[in-house]
Design a protein around this nucleic acid. Structure first.
Lengths: 236, 236
DNA sequence: TGATCTTTTGTACGATAGTACAAATCTCAT
DNA sequence: ATGAGATTTGTACTATCGTACAAAAGATCA
């Protein structure tokens, strides 16, 4: 084999590095980190396995770069939306806007990257579930600021709710958000086709609506004890 | 006869099969399926790698057996609690009892197995995130009945809410439940120590409270459109 | 006890993992 | 065109993977 005419027949890849990143993001997000091999990624990107090593040195390095690529834009977008939300005058609307500022960037792209932020958010969900070390480090130092800002904003809208309760509820929000991206088919299945779990717009609206109501629920201390007993009769 | 030796000390291995199951459950739940090797499991159980093959044939078979071991008891427990909840007369209390019937067995053991159901639920969360094939098959055919029963029960308590909305909200519930078991430390961290994410009792109460409020939120169709964009001081 | 069945051990095999590295190829200013 | 740097390719190495299997050890009961 003297030569191979790669320049003409295949669509010219102006940036193989981007193709590898996109392929890895997709594969990691759907199968987890360890289930995907470097060779799988290379094949999906139409690249050579060695090319992955060249661009990202290690598999961890590849994951790291995926995070680096998305964290900035997404958090920036969240900050902007949060700042705008805080300016909403009506209290009820403001809370909804705050929640929306947290949810929307997770579903839609926070940058120019194709495929949207949903894929990256799903990736985060999967890495979180797997207890991935690289992801854990990045998340703690990158997203905690954003989370705190969000929690503070919610707390300002609901000053009568203790902060720990708000932390719990925003934690539930993130879990619900993650799970909606991980197994959207379950929504379609359980609703017998009446709802489409893959529809981002529906997911956002439903999630915002439910979360706002959850945040507005009375705090545990002041509400539950009075009528606790009737509900939980059998207990270990 | 010598007394039954406690399983913590080296002592004797009365049931290596159980030790392997427990070790695998723990390792899978914390690291994912592919990140854990059969050798890791064997070592954690104090067994020989070949012993795993003998008892469970394959790694998939081991995972399958873990599911088989838990699904029955947990769903049975849920059915019992759900039946009891449906008998609660007060509407508000009934809804709370229904939600509790869904949540409690996921946190506490549904059987005599040590370690509680939390570990298994966390395992399910991780397998779900990884898109594990074995788990996917079992879940669809084992948990969907339970989920439908739960959704129907909630719908009976809230007949004015469209069923798809209830599906979405119960989906969020499961996501929040999963995430609370996957990264409890995040709650502790974001609350700056004011809340303990590892405390099952707190998690349950917070989750039930938030979820009941979410279920009771007005449906999307009838509430949102009126005040979506403009500031709405008027109530329709 | 000895025979038989169950369980555990030790080892090995083929497949595949991540990664390194040199050769081949491409890009582009000069 | 040419040479230098950037990128891609091909291949190989070592480690570890899941699993198979024969031998050793333990258990059970006539």
């Amino acid at each position: 084999m003297a030569r191979k005419p790669t320049s003409k027949e295949t669509a010219r890849k102006p940036n193989m590095r981007e193709a590898i990143l996109a392929a890895a993001e997709e594969l990691f997000a759907t199968n987890g980190f360890n289930a995907v091999s470097v060779r799988d990624i290379a094949q999906a990107a139409g690249a050579n396995p060695g090319s992955v090593t060249y661009h990202f040195k290690t598999k961890d390095g590849l994951l790291l770069e995926i995070y680096r690529r998305h964290c900035g834009p997404m958090n920036l977008r969240r900050s902007e939306l949060l700042a705008a939300a805080k300016r909403v005058r009506d209290l009820q609307d403001r809370l909804e806007a705050i929640v929306r500022a947290y949810v929307v960037p997770a579903f839609t792209s926070g940058s120019d990257l194709a495929g949207g932020g949903a894929r990256f958010t799903r990736l985060r969900a999967v890495m979180s579930a797997e207890g991935n070390e690289v992801a854990r480090r990045i998340i703690a130092q990158t997203f905690d600021d954003t989370s705190h800002a969000f929690i503070d904003a919610v707390h300002e809208s609901l000053p009568h709710i203790p902060r720990p309760d708000i932390v719990w509820r925003s934690h539930f929000l993130l879990g619900a958000l993650y799970y909606s991206l991980v197994t959207p088919d379950r929504v379609s299945r359980l609703s017998r086709g009446e709802a489409d779990g893959s529809d981002a717009a529906s997911a956002i609206e439903q999630l915002v609506q439910a979360t706002v109501a959850a945040f507005q629920a009375p705090a545990l201390d002041q509400a539950a004890p009075a009528r606790r007993r009737a509900a939980a009769s059998s207990k270990t």
